[in-house]
């Protein structure tokens, strides 16, 4: 199985897109080699704009370019994109309904050694609270490629949450189809348990499910790449068949995917829900694997918690 970070796939997709569409431009804030917008720069240097370490300005510039008909992909680390430049995204992009794509890389704990200041764990909550903002977090390189293409075709602001660490390809089925707002059933289980996961947690959930199977627990796994607008229909459909819902995200459990799922279910089909995610604390330095484990997001920890939850 191929293993590639979603930010790597982002760079490749952006470069391919730039060659297809002369309106696609990239903006970066002195992180082009890390966010991988440098890939676009290699093929279309005249459409790559470094804004220096000035994220607020970058979001405004992106809005201005969109106002004149361009499709800007503005990139920096998720913490700076959604945190530092929140008000610029709110006013100049979301409220103004500008066709800006925010490529937010290095999201979550798996940023690793840089520690808590660089591990954005609140961005899904921040971005999904903005009216008109579409929020997408692809689970692997294949899905990232599809996301970038779809985001460019879609008219309106999109926040794309990407990771630093390599993840295994999951969406390898020849039937795989990406559509904004449509969840993907990765595995149809036989137990009354449904996993709803996003981003790197889809791969982690799959690993956990292998172990759970040995204990006779065979959950369904839904990959929610689009957190907003959420595929409510799909989630309700599987909740109706389940007693237990498990949401999994590399994000705080406050306001992210788990909250979005609970908001839908409490109105339509209330179920007991286990919130796998970071429990209202900041992260710390470390390598991705041990970090996921310490904060309760590793396959082993998922198995422990789920076993307890469905007992």
């Amino acid at each position: 199985m191929a293993k590639i970070a979603t930010r790597e796939a982002y760079g490749k997709a952006l470069a391919a897109l730039a060659l297809e569409n002369p309106k696609v431009v990239a903006l970066d804030a002195d992180l082009a080699a890390s966010t991988k917008t440098i890939e676009l720069k290699k093929v279309a240097p005249e459409r790559h704009f470094d804004m220096g370490i000035a994220e607020a300005n970058m979001m405004g510039v992106a809005a201005g370019m969109a106002a004149n008909g361009y499709i800007p992909f503005a990139s920096t680390f998720a913490v700076f994109a959604s945190g530092r430049a929140y008000d610029q995204i709110r006013t100049s992009i979301a409220y103004a309904n500008m066709n800006v794509k925010i490529g937010a890389t290095h999201a979550g704990l798996t940023v690793g050694e840089d520690g808590a200041t660089h591990q954005m764990l609140e961005d899904i909550a921040l971005m999904r609270a903005l009216p008109g903002m579409t929020v997408i977090q692809p689970a692997d390189g294949i899905e990232t490629y599809a996301t970038i293409k779809a985001a460019a075709e879609y008219k309106g602001p999109v926040y794309i949450r990407l990771g630093r660490a390599a993840v295994e390809d999951i969406n390898t089925s020849p039937d795989y189809k990406f559509e904004i707002g449509k969840g993907v059933v990765v595995h149809e289980g036989t137990s009354p348990v449904t996993f709803v996961a996003t981003g790197v947690m889809v791969a982690e959930a799959l690993k956990a499910m292998e172990q759970l199977k040995e204990q006779g627990i065979d959950p369904t796994l839904i990959n929610i790449h689009t957190i907003k607008p959420l595929d409510e229909e799909l989630i309700i459909k599987y909740a109706e068949k389940s007693e237990y819902i498990v949401s999994l995200e590399e994000h705080t459990v406050m306001g992210g995917l788990g909250s979005a799922v609970a908001e839908v279910l409490v109105k339509n089909c209330p179920r007991k829900q286990l919130f796998i995610g970071v429990q209202d604390v900041f992260g710390e330095s470390g390598t991705p694997g041990p970090l996921l484990d310490k904060y309760g997001l590793s396959a082993n920890k998922i198995v422990e918690k789920v076993t307890e939850f469905v007992k």
Binding site: A56, N57, V61, G64, M65, A67, G69, S92
Partner: peptide
């Protein structure tokens, strides 16, 4: 900033 973006465009 928005003016800068329009002007670059």
């Amino acid at each position: 900033s928005v003016g800068v973006g329009m002007s670059i465009a």
